[in-house]
Computed example of a mutant assay.
Amino acid sequence: MTPRTAWRGCAAAGIVAFICSASFGLIPGMVACGPTGGLDPIVAFEFTRTPAAVAALFGSEPCTATLVAAQKTGLLLDTLGFIPSYTAFLILAAIATGTRTPRVRMAVIATFIIAAVSDQIENGLLYAILRDLPGTSALLGPLWWAVHVKFTLLALGMITIGALLFGTGRKLARVFGTIVAIAGCVSCYGVSPASGGAMVIGFLYGWTTLLVGALLACLSTSPFAARAAPPPDQATPSA
Rank of each mutant, 00 (worst) to 15 (best):
T221Q: 12
A52D: 10
G213D: 06
P35T: 15
I161G: 02
L133V: 01
T64Q: 11
V175M: 05
G135R: 00
R8D: 15
V186D: 08
L172F: 08
A93P: 01
K72I: 10
L77F: 08
G59Y: 07
L67A: 01
T2W: 10
F18N: 07
C20T: 08
T87Q: 00
A110C: 12
T5W: 01
L67Y: 03
P193L: 03
G141H: 11
L143N: 13
E61W: 04
A217V: 01
I161P: 02
G29I: 07
T111W: 06
A235R: 15
L126W: 14
D119P: 09
L164Q: 05
I129M: 13
A44L: 13
D233M: 15
V186R: 00
F18L: 13
L210T: 08
T101M: 13
I95D: 02
N123W: 06
A107S: 15
A69H: 13
T168V: 00
I19E: 06
T136Y: 10
W145L: 10
T5P: 06
P51L: 04
P142T: 09
L211D: 03
R8Y: 14
D78E: 14
S222A: 14
R170N: 00
L139Y: 10
A226Q: 13
G169L: 04
L76W: 14
L77W: 09
G169R: 09
G124T: 04
S60H: 11
E122L: 12
A53S: 11
F224P: 00
V149K: 10
T209R: 01
G98A: 07
G29V: 06
I19S: 08
T73I: 12
A181S: 14
G197P: 09
M1I: 13
A12N: 07
T236Q: 15
R174Y: 12
D119I: 09
T208H: 10
F82Q: 10
G59W: 06
R49C: 11
G135A: 08
G81Y: 02
G177N: 02
C33L: 10
T101F: 12
A17V: 03
V147I: 10
T87P: 00
L216S: 08
A110H: 12
C185Q: 05
W7A: 04
V16L: 15
T50P: 01
L219R: 15
T208A: 10
V117N: 03
L126V: 13
I15D: 01
M199F: 12
V212S: 04
P51H: 11
A88F: 04
F47D: 00
R4W: 07
L125N: 03
G167W: 12
A163F: 15
A194I: 07
A55V: 03
S118W: 02
I113E: 01
I182P: 09
L140F: 04
V186K: 03
C33Q: 12
Q234S: 15
R131W: 13
L153C: 02
A52H: 02
T87F: 03
